[in-house]
Each structure stands twice: as structure tokens, then as C-alpha cells.
Design a protein around this nucleic acid. Sequence first.
DNA 1: ATAAAGTCTATAAAAAAGATAGGGTTTATA
DNA 2: TATAAACCCTATCTTTTTTATAGACTTTAT
Lengths: 137, 137
Amino acid sequence: MLSKKTKYALHALTYLGKHRDEKTVLIHDIAEEHGISHKFLENILLELKKAGILGSKKGKGGGYYLIKDPKEIPLSKVIRLLDGPIALLPCVSLNYYEPCSECKDEATCGINKVMIQVRDETLKILENKTLEDILKT
Amino acid sequence: MLSKKTKYALHALTYLGKHRDEKTVLIHDIAEEHGISHKFLENILLELKKAGILGSKKGKGGGYYLIKDPKEIPLSKVIRLLDGPIALLPCVSLNYYEPCSECKDEATCGINKVMIQVRDETLKILENKTLEDILKT
DNA sequence: ATAAAGTCTATAAAAAAGATAGGGTTTATA
DNA sequence: TATAAACCCTATCTTTTTTATAGACTTTAT
């Protein structure tokens, strides 16, 4: 399951996507719309900004805005950013690889082999579903 | 990512699959083979037994054995049993449904719609990969 | 100047995961 | 029939992760 962080990020991105006609959107408005803690959401938006997905304007009249085209924001990117690996095991993660201590030899481990296949097929899905898909339904 | 419980379960099932010529296998042997806590593994095997995947024999000379054909044990079953939902959000889970508090109306929520699609495609993968796939590699 | 709004870091609280403990029950066998 | 081996069951403790909060700082419009 996705963490609340990722879930909130998706809601925020959706909100921002729906308000692209406005120059900026307040954290406060997004938080209120979904009943999310303002401060918690703040950290999330900051991460999205650092990842180059959002832009912001400081000071009075400021706020956040989408910096990318919704179809250029795949679910895989949002999930990796807030939740970490998409792979089911550390030993098959492309971005967060770590060996599994209980596995004697990765090269001959059937679990490893199958999980690589699962990872590749899962990535196909999550790289092709984007914020645009969420917005257009 | 899968929890250690699920990971250990997969290793145990693999071990049992490889030793199907023997009548029973000791928890101890599986735990030792993978450097897993005996007691922790005990709980896991018990769950697999209750789910009808393993059988056991008590008393001296007892142990565990696979009760199902490896190709009848999909990853989805093992994951659901030890980790819970496969869906990315509670509001799209088939087996563990719960509404999302921050979502005002599921019927019009784009996130919900997309996550249903992700769930269905993910299930296709996890229901078709089985213990047999792990054993044969 | 002032107030509004994002930035940043630290810490606290809650929940979940991981691990351990120990007594109970069953069964082969000497 | 006593004993040791092995699974069964439940409770509890510890650690880690997640979720949430706090507060001081910076920027900017008016």
C-alpha cells in the first residue's frame, strides 16, 4: 500500500492539475480541501518541488504550481520519491538496491529471478500511468 | 516492498518445494539455512498452514510439508496472507477495502479510477507467477 | 513596516514490523 | 509408559517507520 505521504502527494498534484489556470495555489487550500494537516502537506510539497515537479513562489500572493505537463509525471516517479522502491525486494531494486541477508547467492536465487520479472512488469504499468490519466477521468 | 515475513515465507516455501521428496522438513533446518530466527519463522509457517498451503506433522519426527502443487501457489496468495492488500490504496482493495478519509467522493475520484486499473494489472502479474516459477529457475 | 506565504530542521507521538519467550500438546520410540 | 522431539498458541517486548507537530527563518506584495 502507498503511504499517506504518497497518497497526499497524488491528491495535491491532482488539485494543482485542476487549478492550472490559476498562477499559484496555497498549501492551505489543498490541505483544507482534503482534510490534511497543513504542516505535513508542506513537507510533501517541498519534496515535490525539489524533485522538479512543482514550482513555488514565496511571499504574499505566493504558492505552488505545476511545473511539468501532467503527462510527464508518471506514478512511478511520485511513488519512488515519497515511498521509495517499487521493487518488491531490495535485491531487485533499480534505484535502491541492497542485498538480502537471508539469500546465500543472488545468482542462483529463484525468488530473485521471479521478482525481477515482477518488477519489470510493474514498472511498465507505473511508468505509463501519469497524472494526466488521473485528471482526465 | 515485501515485509520480511513475506520474504521469509517465500524462502521457506522454496525450501519446502525443493525437499518434496522428504516426508517432512524441520522449521529448524529452514531457519538455519537462511539465518532466520527459528521462532519468527515458526509463526510464519503456522500461518501458511492455516491458509492451507502447508501441512504439518506434530511430535518426534514431525515437521512441515507442502500440501499444494507449487503451480497452485500464486505470489498473490502468499503476499495477501502475510502482508495484506496488494492494491495501492485501501479504497481499491478487493480483500481489504476501506474508504480513504481524504477523498470526498470515490465515484468521481480520478486517483481511485487509475488505482483500480493499476490493481487489476498488478493482479494479473501476481496471480500468474507461482512457486513453480521460483522453483524452476 | 507588516502580514502573508513558502523554507528548513528538529523532535514528538503513534503505529507497524520484527523478534522473543515460554508453556502447551502431540507423537515416536526406547 | 517415560522421555525427548517437534509443532501449537498467545502474549509481550523492542525497534523501526510513519505520521504529525513545532517553531524559527526568509521572501515578497502592498
